[in-house]
Amino acid sequence: MNVKASAVRGGCELAQVRAPGRTRGAPGRAATLPRVVTLTPAPSIDKVYFLDRVQAGEVNRAKGVSTYFAGNGVNVARSLHLAGNAVSAVLPVGREGLAADGCDGDFLQVVRGVEVGRPIRTNVVLVDESGVTTNINALPAPLDPDQWGRLCQAAADEVRRIGADWFVLGGALPVDVSTGAAVDVRPLFRSMRRLGVAVCLDVAVGEALLEWDEDCQPDLVKPNAAELALMTGHPVRSLRDAVEAAALVRARGVGTVLASLGPDGILEAGEQGALWARGPRTKVVNTTGAGDAALAGYLSVKRRDGRGQRYGALRRAVSWGALAVQQETTMLPRIIENPSDILIGSPEWGHRLT
Rank of each mutant, 00 (worst) to 15 (best):
S191P: 07
L173D: 00
L188P: 01
R190V: 09
G170M: 14
V185T: 04
G171Q: 10
A172P: 02
M192W: 08
V177S: 14
A181R: 15
F189C: 09
D165K: 09
L169E: 00
S178F: 03
E158L: 14
R194K: 15
L173Y: 02
F167M: 12
G170H: 03
V177E: 14
F189H: 09
R190M: 03
G171S: 14
V183M: 03
D165N: 15
R193W: 09
W166H: 13
V183Q: 01
V168E: 14
A164M: 00
V159A: 11
R193I: 11
G171D: 00
A182M: 15
G180C: 08
L169W: 02
R194S: 15
L195F: 05
V177Y: 05
I162Q: 01
R161G: 12
R161L: 11
L188C: 10
A172L: 14
L195K: 03
L188M: 03
G180H: 11
A164V: 02
S178D: 10
D165Y: 08
A181I: 06
V185N: 00
R161A: 13
R186Y: 07
D165A: 13
R160P: 08
E158K: 05
W166C: 12
R190N: 06
P174S: 07
L188Q: 02
S178R: 06
T179I: 04
R193L: 09
D157W: 03
L169K: 13
R186H: 12
E158P: 06
D157R: 09
A181C: 12
V159N: 01
V175N: 02
R160V: 08
R190H: 04
P187K: 11
G171N: 08
R194A: 13
A181F: 11
S191T: 15
T179N: 06
T179E: 03
D157C: 01
R193H: 15
L195T: 00
E158W: 00
R190E: 14
V185Q: 10
F189R: 05
V159E: 05
P174H: 02
V168K: 12
L169G: 12
V168L: 15
S178T: 12
R161I: 06
F167E: 11
A181K: 15
G180I: 14
R190I: 05
V177L: 10
A164L: 06
A182S: 10
L195W: 00
G170L: 06
D176F: 05
L173P: 04
